[in-house]
Amino acid sequence: MKLSSKMKLSSKKFSGFVLAALLSLSLIPACLAQAADDEQQARLAEIKQRIESLQQELNQVKGERDQLLKDLEANEKDISELLQRIDKIKSDMQSRGEKLQELKQEEKQLEESRRSMQRRVEQEVAAAYRLGRQEQIKLLLNQQDPQHIARQLRYHDYFLKQRSRVIDDYVSTLDQLSTVSAGIQREQDTLAHERNQLEEKRSALVSAQKSRQRTLDKLARQLASKSGELDQLQGDRSRLQRLVDEVGRAIASLINPSDQTPFSKQRGRMQWPAQGRRANAFGQPRANGITWTGVTIRAGEGEAVQAIHRGRVVFSDYLRGQGMLIILDHGDGYMSLYGHNQSLTRAIGEWVERGDTIARIGNTGGMSQPGLYFEIRRDGKPQDPTAWCRG
């Protein structure tokens, strides 16, 4: 018996040990996943820092033209931020306008209830006045059958309670009406404040746009000669290539999801990132041996720019010559680039799905009219977008 008890005790201890070991093993994947995620975040932070250092180097002012380009960048960043702020204010105003209409409808219903309840309260008060203040004593002094008196007292008590409920409901409705009316006043005050803010931002936007145009006019005079235009095109291409190369090296160690559809499998199946007329063809000459390494899509200012495939944002900022630029990494060395945007809606490190809005069409980077500059690259080398996007 003693041996059997010891064996049972040992068995329980062993079972407990096995359970603890299994629990520990079940936690290992979660711990590893967390560690891997932390490492990815650290790498993304490092990438962001390396890109910022590269941008500072690329944006160094070396002459009058560089200073003008730097001024243009400041102008266009201000305009982008103002447009985003204006959109936010408009969205808030729309939400508040809808809430205000709901409150006014609620106020109307409560006012109707108040008038109806007021009539009932007036009737109850009149009935109470007619009966007088000693109803129960009158009933008791009335020489009638005790059972009849008891019934009358119960009715009387019911009517008193009913009258009390009517008055309580009326008071509650008045309180609700007061709360809703105060809410309407707050929403109206906030809307008035937002309208003022909107006008201020619009005025600031007009001023920033005029400043941008003055800078563009000065640049145009600087680039009047073919050599000036060629220098700028070469500089723009060099900056973009250095950025792409640096990003490519930086993201080489990042891990992409194993369940992601390979970019190469989508050749000829993807949608264009924006709807509009294609202003140039891939490989088409530009100036003195420089050819187009992407496609410019003419589209309306503010229209959505959509991701062509699932990917991670690896650049989202202003780049001289490209304006507001966003770059997606799709894995296996493939990247897609979207330039000259009005504003960017995604930040470095974010994952986006095919069709997600990542930016808004604009004319930053010195463009004369709104449009999207779009490139696809593999291992840093430009690919013909028409081979990848249909239509």
Rank of each mutant, 00 (worst) to 15 (best):
R154A: 09
E122S: 11
Q143H: 12
A150F: 14
Q118T: 05
Q123T: 01
I149S: 07
D157L: 10
R154W: 01
H156T: 08
H156K: 08
Y158P: 07
R114C: 01
M117A: 09
Q123N: 06
H156E: 09
R130V: 04
Q123S: 06
A126M: 07
R133F: 06
H148D: 09
R133H: 06
P146D: 01
R151H: 13
R151V: 05
Q143D: 11
L139G: 05
E112P: 08
A150P: 12
H156I: 03
E112Q: 10
S116A: 15
E111V: 00
F159H: 04
A128N: 15
A150R: 15
G132Q: 03
E111A: 15
Q118D: 12
S113G: 10
P146Q: 05
E112S: 11
I137L: 13
L141P: 06
A126C: 02
E122V: 05
Q144H: 07
R115K: 12
R154V: 04
L131M: 15
G132T: 00
A126L: 12
Q136L: 06
R115H: 11
E124Q: 13
E111I: 01
G132E: 03
R120V: 00
D157W: 10
Q147F: 14
L131V: 02
L139A: 06
R119G: 07
E112T: 04
R115V: 07
N142F: 02
D157R: 15
I137W: 08
D157H: 13
D157I: 02
V125T: 14
M117W: 10
E124Y: 10
R119M: 10
R154Y: 11
Y155V: 03
L153S: 07
G132C: 03
E122L: 06
D145K: 09
S116Y: 14
R119C: 00
R130W: 03
A127P: 04
Q143K: 02
A127C: 01
Q118F: 14
L153F: 06
Y155W: 08
A126R: 03
H156R: 12
M117Q: 15
H156N: 13
Q136E: 09
L141Q: 08
P146K: 03
Q143V: 01
L141D: 06
M117I: 03
Q136T: 08
D145R: 15
E135M: 04
V121H: 09
H156Y: 10
R133I: 03
R154P: 02
E135K: 05
Y158A: 06
E124N: 09
E135I: 01
R120P: 04
Q144R: 14
R119K: 10
L141I: 00
E111Q: 14
L131G: 13
H148T: 15
S116Q: 14
L153R: 10
R151D: 09
N142P: 02
S113A: 15
Q143E: 12
R114S: 11
R114N: 11
Y155H: 10
Q123R: 01
A127H: 05
L131Q: 12
R120Q: 14
V125F: 08
A150H: 11
M117N: 11
